[in-house]
Design a protein around this nucleic acid. Structure first.
Lengths: 250, 250
DNA sequence: ACAAAAGTGTTATCGCTACACCCATGT
DNA sequence: ACATGGGTGTAGCGATAACACTTTTGT
């Protein structure tokens, strides 16, 4: 399907009010849509945001969120996945909508409405050379971001607020961890995500009691302390618990 | 500002990847944007959704969410407020974004991406004759909705999920109540919103202990039982508590 | 007198916080 | 031996769920 729109100006086009203003339908089809991706990773106990350096005006040379215009025949959710794929080589990573930004003057090139998406990626799987953009990407520390182009700073701020809310009520933190992880890894992650400290004993009891972790029976090696057990996230168990009205908390 | 866009096809237009595909910029400016409003009210212990009857194809005669196309020079958030104003006469009611729907085939007229908004209104203030749409509006019971046009059913579903989450962590329920209300009103509202039952004694203790309710010293009249005290939501106290790290729960 | 909803007090339990302590490994 | 982080047990506090009870109005 592609813009099989009527050219009759008076026709009510699927919305109630517009018809009365007698504005040609064509005038309404002048928007461009873009996606901007907040790609978060976790490395060395720090939460990181993937940025690219702009290679064009406006804001040439500034860092910006990876994003792109959506094609007229492209689902916007898929556009977001496409950007992630081009940039990181990753597929099968959920892109979650945050907000949509529709201020009139936000983009100098014209009326570009942008939809924000975040995703949590496991830095191990990240292959930074997947596209032609390898040269100018940066994992920036979330607490030490450079100046960003456009309204990207506020888009990031919104995404973080939303993410932090969501991380408390859904077990999405696991996306950031390697397949096998220790409870210590997990605690550090949550402390970085939520910017707090947890009591070790209580944190483990909470997590283990949920029944979402599967013990791999393996342990760490070559660490300068007692080796920790390695766990995986038990997705099947999670789905089952959800059925029974279970809700992840904190 | 209005579509001062370049016509050079190779120019990088503010996004990174697009430039390489050598597609004329104009091709990207073919979207229309609409807003769809989930306007919720509370009446006779039931949660209600405001619907309009479509007066045009497609889906002529079906019920639908009130919505409209955004103008090329109109902020989308303001477009949502405009729809609410036209339909209900209400201003100063927050419209909160839910999701953005960008499937390619969702609208037969062309590529229309729609942004969902919900708002909670106090039915007392609602003046249904504010616009020319008086004839064909309907307050539908949220648990007994008719068939809806387009993908509006799923938009409503998403909005309700989001709302129910949010209602637990923010004192937005008050928007649905009259200025002065009893604790019983409030409890009934939350029970309708969340589809649960609360213990009366515990509910009141919880609410009163938060310090968000101001006792008006007035009481109900002409009720066939012991008259209840009337409260108002103390917005000032709420703002103060927020500063101190307070968070509303349940 | 009775129905109906407002409004209050008490108890018993559960969950969690805080903290102390032991364990296994590398240097 | 010691530093480092893994891993566990428990006492006490606080919140709250459950339930019984009293109060005030209209009919």
């Amino acid at each position: 399907m592609n813009n099989k729109r009527s050219s009759k100006t008076e026709k009510v086009i699927g919305h109630q009010f517009t018809a009365f203003y007698k504005i040609p339908i064509e005038k309404f089809f002048q928007f461009a849509l873009s996606v901007d991706c907040i790609i978060l990773g976790y490395h060395e106990n720090r939460l990181k945001l993937l940025l690219i350096e702009r290679g064009a005006e406006p804001h040439l040379g500034k860092m910006a969120l990876p994003g792109d215009l959506a094609y007229p025949n492209e689902d916007i959710n898929l556009a977001a996945s496409r950007v992630l794929l081009d940039l990181t080589g990753l597929t099968d990573v959920a892109m979650i909508q945050t907000n949509t930004y529709g201020q009139v003057d936000r983009h100098p090139i014209g009326r570009v409405v942008t939809v924000g998406y975040y995703s949590l990626i496991n830095v191990d799987q990240y292959s930074p050379l997947a596209s032609s953009w390898a040269g100018n990407v940066l994992w920036a520390d979330i607490d030490d971001l450079p100046d960003l182009a456009f309204d990207h700073k506020s888009i990031v701020g919104d995404a973080l607020r939303i993410l932090r809310e969501r991380v408390r009520s859904q077990p999405i933190g696991f996306e950031l961890l390697p397949k096998k992880f220790t409870l210590g890894d997990m605690q550090s992650l949550y402390e970085a995500l939520l910017n707090t400290k947890f009591d070790k004993a209580n944190f483990r009891k909470r997590m283990l009691s949920m029944g979402l972790l599967k013990d791999t029976k393996e342990i760490q090696t070559e660490v300068a302390h007692r080796p920790a057990r390695l766990f995986t996230f038990d997705k099947v168990a999670y789905e089952n618990l959800i059925q029974k009205g279970f809700t992840f908390e904190l």
